[in-house]
Design a protein around this nucleic acid. Structure first.
Lengths: 195, 195
DNA sequence: TGTACATCAGTGAACGCGCGTTCACTGATGTAC
DNA sequence: TGTACATCAGTGAACGCGCGTTCACTGATGTAC
């Protein structure tokens, strides 16, 4: 096995273990030594793969955000009216939650306020999952496809239903998986759409 | 001024400054020295008022939670059917957000996962604002006042609409205050109620 | 096939720093005589 | 009114610790002759 390959798989292992730890204890609760121990190496060697903790967190955040946004854009590309597209997106989110709950939690539930650089970068283009939803709503309102209203508030409401359901599950207040509740969650989101 | 009074007002000052800092930078981003400096004293002297950082955070969290739950219970005590009571609660939340946005952010938006002791304590009784909402929904479903459904999921959806609107405002994605949007937020929440 | 070399993932010890916390001490203030 | 004392909020220096990060070094592995 050439070294380049080994380095790539090691980086993948670092990302996976770091993601697990971040979701489990929160980003500030995880140290470089914790991640290194989970991977099975020394803290010092993490610096052969990442320039530091910030770069690692930024990499995870950016990858997760971009992947998620890509999935949502793909889900919204189905034929049909606004409600059909919204249903497709919400179903896809619930499905993603079932497939990789750890990534879901990191992307949607972990606060990333001190990451102003990475956040600002992701704010503009289509790599921001929330912006994808908001833009879809804006276009639907502008086209008269749905009733009038504040696009940002409606986006907040739809995102809020899904994210808060995930939060309740995280805290044990809901025991079913999001994918098991997809029908009900979709129904709730559709009820929010005006007219 | 007797010393007991001075101590009480000093504790109040500590609480106010700590709350501001916690909301601004997140709990893990604030040190004992930061709080002491904001109050205008030495870090050492904080230990004359609180046994340590954990006790201070726990005190703030418990007070905030209990106050909030008390307000919601009071708001839900209006005469009328479920929708009327829900509207009263949601309006009260929006109003509280306008009155003391800092407290709102601390109680509803700050993650308190490592506080398992305080959280477990607040989980059972009526000092948990979310439990208040969930119980109201449970009773309404049991009484046949609203359509059938998962009470926890409906509670999550309603809380999600309000909390996510507040989050969008925090991140600058929404610029109006929650109290300015109260009518629209109430309408969104009422649409979620089945039947 | 055997030997010499380059590459590079990983190591172990150490660094400076800010953290939460402790403790002996100070100095202002209210009280008793 | 003046003096002695008790109270207690607040101080300043120090502690041990875990953190992110650095750096000289090691040792396995693939390659060239």
């Amino acid at each position: 096995m050439p070294n380049a390959r080994k380095a790539a798989t090691t980086r993948e292992k670092i990302r996976r273990e770091a993601l697990n730890l971040f979701v489990e204890r929160g980003v500030p609760g995880v140290s470089v030594r914790d991640i290194a121990a989970a991977v099975g190496m020394t803290a010092a060697n993490l610096y052969a793969h990442y320039r530091g903790m910030n770069e690692l967190v930024g990499d995870l955040f950016h990858r997760g955000h971009a992947d998620y946004a890509r999935c949502l854009v793909a889900a919204a590309a189905v034929d049909g009216d606004f409600r059909t597209r919204l249903e497709s997106m919400v179903r896809r989110i619930c499905q993603l939650h079932g497939e990789d709950e750890v990534l879901f939690r990191f992307v949607l539930l972990t606060k990333h306020e001190p990451l102003s650089e990475a956040e600002a970068e992701a704010e503009d283009n289509a790599t921001n999952p929330i912006a994808v939803i908001e833009q879809m709503i804006e276009r639907a309102i502008a086209a008269g496809e749905i009733g009038p209203g504040d696009p940002a508030l409606l986006a907040a409401a739809i995102v809020g239903v899904v994210v808060q359901a995930a939060t309740f599950r995280l805290r044990g207040r809901i025991t079913r998986g999001l994918d098991d509740m997809a029908d009900e969650i979709v129904a709730l989101c559709l009820r929010l759409v005006p007219q």
